[in-house]
Protein backbone atom coordinates (compact mmCIF):
# COMPACT_ATOMS: atom_id res chain seq x y z
CA UNK A 1 0.00 0.00 0.00
CA UNK A 2 3.00 2.26 0.48
CA UNK A 3 3.29 2.70 -3.29
CA UNK A 4 -0.26 3.97 -3.54
CA UNK A 5 0.60 6.76 -1.08
CA UNK A 6 1.78 8.82 -4.03
CA UNK A 7 -0.80 7.68 -6.56
CA UNK A 8 -2.87 10.86 -6.30
CA UNK A 9 0.14 12.96 -7.21
CA UNK A 10 0.84 10.82 -10.26
CA UNK A 11 -2.73 11.18 -11.45
CA UNK A 12 -2.40 14.93 -10.92
CA UNK A 13 0.70 15.04 -13.11
CA UNK A 14 -0.91 12.84 -15.79
CA UNK A 15 -4.03 15.00 -15.91
CA UNK A 16 -1.96 18.17 -16.03
CA UNK A 17 -0.09 16.88 -19.06
CA UNK A 18 -3.21 15.52 -20.76
CA UNK A 19 -4.81 18.93 -20.48
CA UNK A 20 -1.71 20.67 -21.75
CA UNK A 21 -1.55 18.25 -24.69
CA UNK A 22 -5.09 19.17 -25.74
CA UNK A 23 -4.36 22.88 -25.39
CA UNK A 24 -1.28 22.70 -27.58
CA UNK A 25 -2.30 20.09 -30.14
CA UNK A 26 -5.92 20.85 -30.85
CA UNK A 27 -6.95 23.46 -33.37
CA UNK A 28 -10.60 23.55 -32.34
CA UNK A 29 -11.13 26.27 -29.75
CA UNK A 30 -13.72 24.33 -27.74
CA UNK A 31 -11.36 21.37 -27.54
CA UNK A 32 -8.61 23.68 -26.35
CA UNK A 33 -10.94 25.05 -23.71
CA UNK A 34 -11.89 21.58 -22.51
CA UNK A 35 -8.18 20.82 -22.29
CA UNK A 36 -7.76 23.95 -20.22
CA UNK A 37 -10.41 22.84 -17.77
CA UNK A 38 -8.86 19.39 -17.38
CA UNK A 39 -5.59 21.22 -16.74
CA UNK A 40 -7.24 23.29 -14.01
CA UNK A 41 -9.10 20.33 -12.50
CA UNK A 42 -5.81 18.51 -12.06
CA UNK A 43 -4.81 21.20 -9.59
CA UNK A 44 -8.04 20.70 -7.62
CA UNK A 45 -7.07 17.07 -7.13
CA UNK A 46 -3.57 18.03 -6.02
CA UNK A 47 -4.70 20.54 -3.40
CA UNK A 48 -7.45 18.41 -1.98
CA UNK A 49 -5.07 15.46 -1.74
CA UNK A 50 -3.13 17.57 0.76
CA UNK A 51 -6.10 17.87 3.12
CA UNK A 52 -6.43 14.12 3.69
CA UNK A 53 -5.32 12.76 7.05
CA UNK A 54 -5.43 9.13 8.14
CA UNK A 55 -8.48 8.21 10.20
CA UNK A 56 -9.81 11.71 9.55
CA UNK A 57 -13.23 12.95 8.53
CA UNK A 58 -14.64 16.09 6.89
CA UNK A 59 -13.89 19.17 9.02
CA UNK A 60 -17.36 19.65 10.45
CA UNK A 61 -17.10 19.61 14.22
CA UNK A 62 -20.29 18.39 15.86
CA UNK A 63 -21.03 18.05 19.57
CA UNK A 64 -21.77 14.38 19.05
CA UNK A 65 -18.27 13.67 17.73
CA UNK A 66 -15.75 11.60 19.63
CA UNK A 67 -13.36 13.63 21.77
CA UNK A 68 -10.26 12.55 19.87
CA UNK A 69 -11.85 12.71 16.43
CA UNK A 70 -9.33 13.70 13.73
CA UNK A 71 -10.43 16.15 11.06
CA UNK A 72 -9.14 16.79 7.55
CA UNK A 73 -7.31 20.05 6.88
CA UNK A 74 -9.93 22.68 5.95
CA UNK A 75 -7.55 25.14 4.29
CA UNK A 76 -6.89 23.37 0.94
CA UNK A 77 -10.63 22.86 0.63
CA UNK A 78 -11.27 26.56 1.00
CA UNK A 79 -8.60 27.35 -1.58
CA UNK A 80 -10.05 24.91 -4.08
CA UNK A 81 -13.57 26.25 -3.63
CA UNK A 82 -12.07 29.51 -4.84
CA UNK A 83 -10.18 27.82 -7.65
CA UNK A 84 -13.32 26.05 -8.91
CA UNK A 85 -15.09 29.37 -9.13
CA UNK A 86 -12.12 30.89 -10.95
CA UNK A 87 -12.31 27.92 -13.34
CA UNK A 88 -15.97 28.39 -14.23
CA UNK A 89 -15.40 32.14 -14.60
CA UNK A 90 -12.60 31.55 -17.09
CA UNK A 91 -14.62 28.93 -18.96
CA UNK A 92 -17.65 31.19 -19.26
CA UNK A 93 -15.61 34.10 -20.53
CA UNK A 94 -13.73 31.94 -23.02
CA UNK A 95 -16.99 30.42 -24.29
CA UNK A 96 -18.36 33.91 -24.90
CA UNK A 97 -15.22 34.75 -26.86
CA UNK A 98 -15.64 31.54 -28.88
CA UNK A 99 -19.26 32.39 -29.70
CA UNK A 100 -18.19 35.82 -30.90
CA UNK A 101 -15.37 34.28 -32.93
CA UNK A 102 -17.84 31.95 -34.64
CA UNK A 103 -20.04 34.93 -35.51
CA UNK A 104 -17.16 36.97 -36.88
CA UNK A 105 -15.09 34.28 -38.58
CA UNK A 106 -17.65 31.58 -39.31
CA UNK A 107 -15.35 28.95 -37.85
CA UNK A 108 -13.85 27.98 -34.52
CA UNK A 109 -10.82 26.17 -35.94
CA UNK A 110 -7.67 28.12 -35.19
CA UNK A 111 -5.95 27.02 -38.41
CA UNK A 112 -8.85 28.33 -40.53
CA UNK A 113 -9.01 31.60 -38.61
CA UNK A 114 -5.38 32.20 -39.40
CA UNK A 115 -6.04 31.62 -43.11
CA UNK A 116 -8.97 34.06 -43.03
CA UNK A 117 -6.95 36.78 -41.34
CA UNK A 118 -4.23 36.43 -43.91
CA UNK A 119 -6.69 37.54 -46.60
CA UNK A 120 -7.83 40.45 -44.46
CA UNK A 121 -4.44 42.03 -44.06
Amino acid sequence: MEILGLFNYWVFVLLLMTGLFAIIHKSNLIKKLIGLSIFQSAVFLFYVTLDKIDEGTAPIIRDTDLVDQIYANPLPQVLILTAIVVGIATTALALAVIVRIKEEYGTIEESEMRELDRYLS
Partner: peptide, 14 residues
Protein backbone atom coordinates in the same frame (compact mmCIF):
# COMPACT_ATOMS: atom_id res chain seq x y z
CA UNK B 1 -9.06 41.22 -31.16
CA UNK B 2 -11.17 38.15 -30.39
CA UNK B 3 -8.59 35.75 -31.78
CA UNK B 4 -5.88 37.56 -29.80
CA UNK B 5 -7.96 37.38 -26.63
CA UNK B 6 -8.49 33.66 -26.93
CA UNK B 7 -4.75 33.04 -27.10
CA UNK B 8 -4.31 35.47 -24.23
CA UNK B 9 -6.89 33.62 -22.11
CA UNK B 10 -5.25 30.27 -22.73
CA UNK B 11 -1.72 31.50 -22.04
CA UNK B 12 -2.78 33.59 -19.06
CA UNK B 13 -4.66 30.69 -17.50
CA UNK B 14 -1.72 28.34 -17.99
Amino acid sequence: ALAAVFTYIVMGTI
